[in-house]
Design a protein around this nucleic acid. Structure first.
Lengths: 175, 175
DNA sequence: ACCTGAACACCGTTCAAGT
DNA sequence: ACCTGAACACCGTTCAAGT
């Protein structure tokens, strides 16, 4: 088959994957199922994307970039760190199963690579918050991301809501 | 076979399950693998325990009870709510894969049932903390458990440590 | 009464064989 | 160059057949 067909296959696979992820979650989705629904053999899917994370990275990549871009808009917001934490949680929550995938993704894998801009943005905002005394000085950017991921995850399967848990975390449990 | 054999099989299955859970985590552990290692057919495992949660409940049940019992010891501790949160997180962390199982367990299933004493203890301590003004008055016991589970979960697959995240949650992110 | 293990429909993943 | 789909070793789960 031609390179043209290959390109179409690739585009179609991403499209179908996005559908399946939305239906059952990125973690629960089956590679065979995605290939089947795209009308393609499993082998074709696996050569276009060497592992599931690569496929996920392609599906959520552009929205991760959009999230990172939002960070610059937030820089001058009076409560930007809280806003950023909210944005992180919201974004992860919008892609069911992504939280579980993020925490298991190897550091040098495609998904982690795609997250780099968001990590960078988080580092910037935490540093900025620190110079302004808006945040406890020992908080690391990685910790903020871990906590955002944890909140997004627990939200997927319990009645707890992201804004509420975000508030509890940000302000603490004491009065 | 005799009822005697059945009882021995059951005990052996719980024993082996505990081993496998410790090795690969309760979530990743395979039912077939447990049956195989116990020298028993899959069917035998499934009749003794109608689903995986029932098996998990049996394995972690006694330690859940011990956790609940700890709550009464804590009642007079000056910082008992923080201690309790720490105990919750510590306990879940000690059983890898338990966090994921807890959040997906059906409310009327065997695992949720086994968690009842811990939920009860949490409700008591939160209520007590509230009357003493030690905690924000809108915090619900369920929220505390959800957050403890989330922290235990994120801890399994990242360099983040339970005591640190517990502190961040309890005290909040602001200085 | 209790156990066995073959069986079913899946999964991720690979790779010879086709165009 | 790219695709196919059978194949392998697994998984959860069931159930006829055995003692």
């Amino acid at each position: 088959m031609s390179r043209e067909d290959a390109r179409r296959n690739r585009a179609r696979l991403i499209e179908v994957a996005a559908e399946v992820f939305a239906e059952v979650g990125a973690d629960a989705a089956s590679m065979n199922d995605i290939a089947r629904r795209a009308g393609v053999g499993p082998g074709t899917l696996w050569r276009h994307f060497p592992n599931k994370d690569a496929l996920i990275a392609e599906v959520v990549g552009t929205s991760l970039d959009a999230l990172a871009a939002l960070a610059t808009d937030l820089r001058d917001h009076p409560d930007f760190l809280r806003e950023w934490l909210t944005a992180l949680v919201t974004h992860i929550t919008q892609h069911r199963g992504l939280a579980a995938r993020l925490t298991h993704a190897p550091t040098d894998g495609p998904l982690s690579t795609r997250c780099h801009p968001v990590e960078q943005a988080t580092a910037d905002l935490v540093a900025r918050a620190r110079t302004q005394g808006m945040v406890r000085p020992d908080l690391t950017p990685a910790e903020l991301i871990h906590l955002a991921t944890a909140i997004a995850w627990i939200t997927e399967t319990t009645p707890a809501t992201p804004p509420r848990l975000t508030t509890l975390l940000f302000d603490g449990l004491t009065p």
